[in-house]
């Protein structure tokens, strides 16, 4: 399974939860498969999906799922100790680890070589770190949601991409409807 297939299999689990989605193809795929106000698409700032998601989780009560990539976590490694030491039980970090910088043409990352993101997250002090294979992603994410514990999921999948259109929506619109949806849910 490649990332787009993993995301597709997760749609019923994302359901109406708020999702912060990584830059590039993951956001474009999620957008194409079913755009909604509960999705926050990153159009820039590779690496900050986990930081943005943590900020949202710390500021309010609704569950937040950050969809991240192995390359993006590698570029913002500092995020893992911050997450470990600022526990938000409404936060789930879902790292789709395809072992490559998928959005730029599947150049290999170190996560697909000797470096284990699961081991790094654990070493950083994260308490609920789960590694799963692509096929088990829906069950693993559902279990994390049901546990009401901050969880880091490292979902291993194959590299590879499908053709998807870019997101042309205005960033302020993306942000505003996401905020309003959160506000309504917290009211």
């Amino acid at each position: 399974m490649i990332r787009s297939e993993v995301l597709k299999s997760l749609l019923p689990v994302f359901a109406d939860h708020h999702v912060v989605c990584n830059i590039g193809l993951p956001s474009q795929e999620l957008h194409m498969m079913g755009d909604k106000p509960t999705n926050f698409y990153m159009l820039g700032t590779m690496g900050l999906s986990s930081s943005i998601g943590l900020g949202v989780a710390l500021a309010q009560k609704e569950k937040v799922i950050s969809i991240d990539g192995d390359g993006s976590v590698l570029t913002n490694f500092g995020t893992l100790p911050t997450i470990a030491n600022n526990v938000a039980d409404n936060f789930i970090l879902l790292i789709i680890d395809n072992g490559s910088y998928g959005s730029t043409g599947d150049q290999p990352t170190y996560a697909g070589m000797k470096t284990s993101l699961t081991a790094v997250a654990t070493a950083c002090g994260c308490e609920n770190v789960v590694e799963c294979q692509a096929e088990d992603a829906p069950a693993t994410l559902q279990a994390a949601i049901d546990s009401n514990k901050m969880t880091i999921i490292v979902c291993k999948c194959e590299s590879g991409n499908i053709k998807v259109p870019v997101i042309t929506m205005d960033p302020v619109v993306i942000r505003d409807r996401f905020m309003k949806s959160l506000e309504a849910r917290n009211a």
Binding site: G47, L48, S50, I52, G55, V56, A57, A59, N76, M179
Partner: peptide, 17 residues
Amino acid sequence: NKEDEGMGICAGAFMGG
């Protein structure tokens, strides 16, 4: 741990109200 990370957290907090 790095200032851009901090700005990401701030952006999220803002969206969370």
